[in-house]
Computed example of a mutant assay.
Amino acid sequence: MKDFFVSLLFFGLTGYFIYLIVQNMPQLFTETTTIKQYGLLVYRLIMVFVLFNLGIVSSKNYKRSKPA
């Protein structure tokens, strides 16, 4: 049961980082965009991939540990 809640947590965090990326999208790719903003975008994209993969792994562990 723990793996189920952990996977929900990871999927929720993934959604939060996707929200942050989409919210700040209009500020990107303008003439005044700084390296810091690009770095933050890359960091958030990496976090989305990592957290989503951890959520998938946790949900697979939950399905595997369920009694048949």
Rank of each mutant, 00 (worst) to 15 (best):
L54V: 01
L51I: 01
R44Y: 09
V22K: 08
L8K: 14
F5W: 15
N61Q: 12
F29W: 07
I35N: 08
Y43E: 15
F29K: 14
Y38R: 10
G15D: 00
K2M: 13
N61A: 10
Q27E: 07
L9Y: 14
Q27H: 07
A68E: 03
Q23V: 08
F52I: 03
L41G: 08
Y16V: 14
T32A: 05
A68F: 11
G55M: 00
V50K: 14
N53T: 14
Y62D: 02
Q37Y: 04
L54D: 04
T33V: 13
F11L: 03
F29L: 15
I35Y: 04
I18W: 04
L45K: 06
L20N: 12
N53C: 09
T32Q: 15
L40F: 10
Y43K: 14
Y19A: 09
D3M: 02
K66S: 01
E31L: 10
S7L: 02
Q23K: 15
V6T: 07
F49H: 13
N24F: 00
Q23Y: 01
E31D: 13
Y38P: 05
S59E: 01
N53E: 07
L40I: 04
G12F: 04
T14Y: 02
V42P: 03
I35F: 12
L28W: 09
E31F: 07
F29E: 11
Y16N: 00
V22I: 07
I35P: 06
S7Y: 08
F29R: 12
F4T: 00
F11K: 01
F17H: 07
V50T: 11
L8H: 05
S65N: 03
Y62R: 09
G15E: 01
S65A: 14
L8E: 03
G12W: 02
V48Q: 13
I46N: 12
N61M: 11
F29I: 01
L8Y: 09
D3K: 00
V48D: 05
Y43G: 15
T34L: 03
F29P: 10
T33W: 01
V57E: 12
L40K: 14
L9H: 13
Y16I: 10
K66R: 09
R64S: 12
N24L: 00
F17I: 08
Y43M: 15
G39C: 14
Y16T: 05
F10C: 08
K36C: 08
G12L: 09
F10N: 15
Y16H: 12
D3S: 00
T34R: 06
Y19E: 11
S58Y: 06
T33R: 10
F10L: 00
T14D: 05
M47N: 14
F5P: 07
F11G: 06
F11T: 00
K36V: 10
I56V: 11
K2N: 09
G15K: 01
K63N: 10
L28P: 05
N53Y: 15
I18D: 01
F10Q: 06
V48I: 03
K66Y: 02
G55H: 05
A68K: 12
A68T: 10
G55L: 00
G12H: 00
S58D: 05
L45F: 07
L40N: 15
F11M: 12
L54H: 08
R44F: 00
G15P: 01
S65M: 04
F11H: 03
V22G: 05
I46W: 09
D3W: 06
Q27F: 09
V57Q: 14
V42E: 08
G15L: 00
V22Q: 12
I21Y: 02
K63P: 06
S58T: 06
Q23N: 14
Y62H: 09
